[in-house]
């Protein structure tokens, strides 16, 4: 009980101005992170400018836990590019390489076939049933840059949510209790 009393006293002894400062600085941190993310979205034109590789289907190029930077320009899609695409009925986007492209003469629409470098066959088995080609609207972006290992942080956090809560709690506590 003595411990709780001390804590209550120490909270009471905090000046209101100091509490306000802490709250504002916490808000600044959150908003600056948000600003950076949204700015990246504007610059790259992709709704998720950074993705984490989750499977080994592009090994040895990309391993699980690597980070890819995406770019979505109006440039046409060409064979060999590494694209991130969504398949109808699948929640998680896939990062694979384009191996075939057919671009229409009249409309400019493209039919694209992809394959993982480490997979034996092409991706038609992964597409929706009966789907032979990807179209432009399936593609979220193409990979332009690469950073190894950093994505493990998010993989660990999604698979072990408890670690995420501990981390958020510890950071929050640090911000609130630090006297600047």
């Amino acid at each position: 009980m003595g411990w709780i009393g001390e804590t209550v006293d120490s909270i009471k002894s905090l000046q209101i101005r100091q509490v306000l400062t802490q709250t504002v600085s916490l808000g600044m941190i959150v908003t600056s992170a948000l600003i950076i993310w949204k700015a990246l979205m504007c610059i790259t034109g992709s709704e998720s400018p950074v993705v984490v590789v989750l499977s080994g289907s592009m090994e040895p190029g990309f391993k699980r836990g690597d980070i890819l930077f995406l770019h979505m320009s109006t440039d046409p899609i060409r064979a060999g590019e590494i694209v991130v695409f969504n398949v109808d009925g699948r929640e998680i986007p896939i990062v694979h390489r384009v191996i075939k492209v057919h671009e229409r003469q009249d409309t400019g629409e493209v039919d694209v076939l992809t394959k993982g470098d480490n997979n034996y066959g092409d991706d038609r088995l992964l597409y929706a049933q009966g789907q032979l080609w990807l179209q432009r609207h399936h593609i979220m972006g193409r990979a332009v840059g690469f950073l190894p290992y950093v994505g493990w942080v998010t993989i660990i956090m999604t698979e072990k949510p408890i670690i995420k809560y501990i981390l958020i709690g510890a950071l929050g506590l640090l911000v609130v209790t630090s006297k600047e």
Binding site: G61, A79, G80, V101, E103, R104
Partner: peptide, 13 residues
């Protein structure tokens, strides 16, 4: 029909 057809025939790492 198509202004461009690209078909990968062989690849390697």
């Amino acid at each position: 029909k198509n202004s461009l057809n690209q078909i990968s025939l062989w690849d390697g790492i």
